[in-house]
Amino acid sequence: MFEDFIYVLTKYDVWLWRGFLLTAQLLVISVAFGTVLAIPLAVARVSKKVWIQAVPFAFIYMFRGTPLIGQLFMMYYGVGQLVANIDGIQDHWTWTYLRDPYWYCLLTFVLNTAAYVAEIMRGGIQNVPGGEIEAARACGMTPFTTYRRIIFPRMWQMIWPAYTNDVIFTLKATSLASTVTLIELTGAARKIVARTALPYEAFISAGLIYLIIVYVLTLGFKMIERYLRRSEKRKDKLPGKIKPMGV
């Protein structure tokens, strides 16, 4: 058992490393673009006008309401085939990118992350105390400035734990990329299993790498959380150290 571990880790270290790089890449890009896309979605989602609300609502509902693997297959085999059937596309210079599973996969992950994050942000925005917004208006801030200086900072403070959770969720979701031929970390493990017939050693090795990634992520996000809550100077107000009332 132990020798088999060493065997997998030394003989297939390059496969695992490349898998790790692709997983990291998919995660970072999905979260970054997903978050940027989520901001306008969330703002539109809290609009009081029904027709502005409707579009992000439908988008979020669709992406949260269907399994990610289904979305991935729809995008890769569904949209991908439609694109492939366009006349002359296969001779066009863009075809190099349009035939590549990477972009379909990335797009699915970005949209999916955007839907989840937008819904988290909606909750955050709606929970900003009304008094603070009124105060900002009273000071003469435009709606844009109110968002920039009051609502968004307060929102980030509130949603950060949920957001962290969602990033970790996305990390694990990237493993589905192996079903559309991308060899990320899980794909690399499956490849090793195919070669060695050592499923435990290969998947535990990949699992350990996922755990390390999650550990580093959690650490980094904790530090950012402390920064976001820097205005709450008194230590006893931080979560986990709340004292009983009247003490």
Binding site: Y77, G80, Q81, A84, N85, Q90, W95, R99, D100, P101, T179
Partner: peptide
């Protein structure tokens, strides 16, 4: 994952 999917992508030109 399956040979069927490889054939789908062959026809799609990918």
């Amino acid at each position: 994952d399956t040979q069927d999917n490889a054939l789908l992508d062959l026809v799609a030109g990918r």
